[in-house]
Design a protein around this nucleic acid. Structure first.
Length: 348
DNA sequence: CAGTCGTGGAA
DNA sequence: TTTCCAAGACT
């Protein structure tokens, strides 16, 4: 009574989610749209991606349009989505694909492109090109851990879970519909085999599930403990001109928030900044006045507390950066920088 | 290989 | 409030 692809696909044909990037049965599949959705969905929820995917596609309808765009346009369109290396790699990948005349149709070729790792290569390969592979994301890891009763913690258990997933393609029923099989696993993980309170009563694989049999389904997959996130401090400077515009700068291409616009400021470090030391990092000499309050933001590996100073610009000369109205800046900035605009709300 | 790299919603 | 987490990739 082991889990069968036939049972899962039958369930999928009845309960599949309707998603913007998902072609209806029989509908033509667009590799560009599938690739875009897979990159956008990396570590990002379906709910968050939905409206951003539609907007992105409207602005860049084809891989050629994306390849021809300036980085500033792509950065603005990605602002707020996080993990900005994805946007840089997306842009580079679009240029490579446009130059090559299309996407590679096999996983090896896909995986050689920027921003496409083992998961995305398998997902695009299976969904767009019917490659007989099983992409392993968090959903698939969870489903495999439970079905096979894998109690070893992640990330160490990743290889065994990947092997279990790959074994699914030995079933000719799965091999006949690789894209649907992959998306069936996603939907099962997202709607039934959920991280908390899995709905085992609705699961097409319940009878063959080792974790369900042992009553430990909610405890799998186990995960190694994560280190605590340290606190860092920064001070930022909001310079505004007579037209109400604020001064922004482009961050270095690599590293945190790489290539994105920012409100100028100090580096972010463990020790709080004394005022005199912080002012050394101001973009110009001006009548800097502290803005009341503290802006907080949580990153993956540290927490941040920012203070803000504001001043009117006395001269436009020799100040590097871009002047933007706060209304326009908001949409072009990463969320952490939007918090500074929010803090300054009464000032600007 | 373990660390880096965002964000917002849910519990 | 804190913690966890979501269709991971890159170094």
């Amino acid at each position: 009574m082991s889990p069968s692809a036939a049972d899962l696909l039958a369930w999928y044909d009845r309960h599949r989610r309707v998603l913007p990037w998902r072609a209806a049965p029989g509908e033509a599949r667009d590799p560009y749209r599938i690739w875009l959705s897979e990159v956008m969905l990396q570590q990002t929820t379906v709910a968050a991606v939905g409206p951003r995917y539609a907007r992105f596609l409207q602005r860049f309808p084809t891989v050629g349009a994306l390849a021809a765009a300036d980085w500033a346009e792509v950065a603005e369109e990605w602002a707020g989505l996080g993990y900005y290396a994805r946007a840089r790699n997306l842009h580079a990948c679009a240029k490579a694909v446009a130059a090559a005349g299309g996407f590679p149709r096999n996983t090896e070729g896909l995986a050689a492109l920027p921003g496409i790792g083992p998961y995305t290569a398998a997902a695009v390969g299976a969904i767009a090109f019917d490659a007989p592979v099983v992409p392993v994301d968090g959903n698939v890891e969870r489903v495999m851990a439970r079905i096979h009763g894998v109690e070893a913690p992640l990330p160490g258990a990743k290889p065994i879970l990947t092997a279990h997933a790959a074994a699914c393609m030995e079933d000719p029923v799965a091999r006949a519909r690789p894209g649907d099989f992959a998306q069936a696993l996603f939907d099962l993980g997202a709607t039934v085999c959920t991280p908390r309170n899995p709905a085992c009563a609705l699961c097409p694989w319940r009878e063959g599930c080792a974790a369900h049999r042992a009553g430990i389904q909610a405890e799998l997959p186990r995960k190694s403990p994560k280190p605590a996130r340290p606190l860092r401090h920064g001070v930022h400077f909001l310079l505004r001109d007579d037209a109400g515009r604020v001064l922004l700068r482009r961050r270095p291409e690599k590293g945190l928030l790489g290539g994105m616009l920012e409100v100028p400021g100090t580096p972010w470090r463990a020790d709080p900044w004394p005022e005199t030391e912080a002012l050394d990092h101001a973009p110009s000499t001006a009548a800097w006045r502290p803005v009341e309050g503290i802006a907080r933001h949580g990153f993956t590996h540290f927490e941040l507390e920012m203070r803000l100073y504001a001043a009117p610009a006395v001269t436009m000369a020799a100040v590097a950066g871009e002047w933007m109205l706060p209304s326009a800046a908001r949409g072009a900035l990463p969320s952490v920088m939007r918090r500074l605009l929010d803090l300054a709300g009464a000032v600007v």
